[in-house]
C-alpha cells in the first residue's frame, strides 16, 4: 500500500504515513470532515452525454446484479491545481455516501473511478475489501484497456470498459476464493494484513495547532 499523498509504502496497521505523516485527519482537514452524498456516476464535469450515462448505468446495473456485495461508482470532475486524485479518492471513500447503495454495499467494498478533466488523468480508488480482491496491476491493466476511448473523449464507454475489465478480475478472484477452504481464507487474510514493512506501530501524529479552525469550517 502507498500513501495517498507521498506515494511511499505504508504498512497495513499504520495510523499515519511513516514518511509524511498523512492520515485521514489531514484529509479531513483539507477536504472537510463532513460526509458528502454522491451519485453512482457523479458527473461534476458534465462530460457525459445522456446516451453514455444510460449505457453506463445499464452496465453498472448488470455488475451490481452479478456482484451483490460490490459498489461501483465514478466521479468525473475538473479538479483544481494542487488537488491530488489519490487524496480525493481516499477522502471520498471515507466521507462519501453513494445514493442508492444499500447497506450490503459499504464503501469498503467500493471501486471508485476518478476522472480529472484538467490533468487528463484517471484513477481507481479501492476500499479495503476491494483492494483485497483487485491488485494494483489488475487495476492498471483495466485503465490501460480503456485508454483509446479516453483519448477519443469517449468517457462513458471508457468507464464502462474499465468496470467490465475489473468485473472480470473479480469473477476470477471469486472463483478462486470459492475453491479455498475457510482456514486457507483466514491464512490469506492474515498474510494480507501482516506487517509488510515490519516496523513498530506508528502512532498518530499530533494535530497541528489550526485544527479547531478546520473543524469549524467543516462543521
Amino acid at each position: 500500500m502507498k500513501c495517498p499523498k507521498c506515494q511511499r509504502p505504508v504498512d497495513h496497521e499504520a495510523e499515519s504515513c511513516y514518511s509524511c505523516g498523512y492520515s485521514e485527519l489531514e484529509a479531513a482537514e483539507r477536504y472537510g470532515a463532513n460526509h458528502v452524498q454522491l451519485s453512482r456516476v457523479h458527473d461534476a464535469a458534465a462530460c457525459l452525454r445522456k446516451q453514455e450515462r444510460d449505457d453506463l448505468a445499464e452496465a453498472l446495473d448488470h455488475l451490481e446484479m452479478k456482484f451483490p456485495q460490490m459498489l461501483f461508482c465514478a466521479y468525473l470532475g475538473s479538479l483544481p491545481p494542487g488537488v491530488s486524485m489519490s487524496e480525493l479518492g481516499f477522502w471520498l471513500l471515507n466521507h462519501g455516501q453513494v445514493k442508492g447503495a444499500e447497506y450490503a454495499r459499504p464503501n469498503e467494498n467500493a471501486i471508485l473511478l476518478i476522472l480529472d478533466m484538467n490533468s487528463k488523468q484517471i484513477g481507481v480508488s479501492l476500499g479495503y475489501f476491494a483492494e483485497s480482491l483487485i491488485t494494483e496491476e489488475d487495476a492498471y491493466r483495466a485503465l490501460m484497456h480503456a485508454r483509446p476511448n479516453l483519448i477519443n473523449a469517449e468517457f462513458g464507454e471508457a468507464l464502462e470498459r474499465i468496470f467490465l475489465r475489473l468485473s472480470r478480475v473479480l469473477r476470477k478472484k471469486g472463483r478462486k476464493l470459492q475453491k479455498v477452504s475457510h482456514q486457507e481464507l483466514q491464512d490469506q487474510s492474515r498474510a494480507l494484513n501482516r506487517n509488510v514493512l515490519d516496523l513498530p506501530p506508528h502512532l498518530r501524529p499530533e494535530l497541528p495547532e489550526k485544527q479547531p479552525e478546520i473543524e469549524l469550517r467543516s462543521a
Binding site: 500500500m1 495517498p4 485521514e24 486524485m85 471515507n94 483492494e131 485503465l143
Partner: peptide, 18 residues
C-alpha cells in the same frame, strides 16, 4: 480487514493513469 491511515472504509489504495 485492518484499517490504516485512520480511514474507515479505505486506506488510500489508488492506481492512476494519464
Amino acid at each position: 480487514v485492518v484499517p490504516r491511515l485512520g480511514g474507515e472504509f479505505s486506506g488510500g489504495g489508488f492506481v492512476s493513469m494519464s
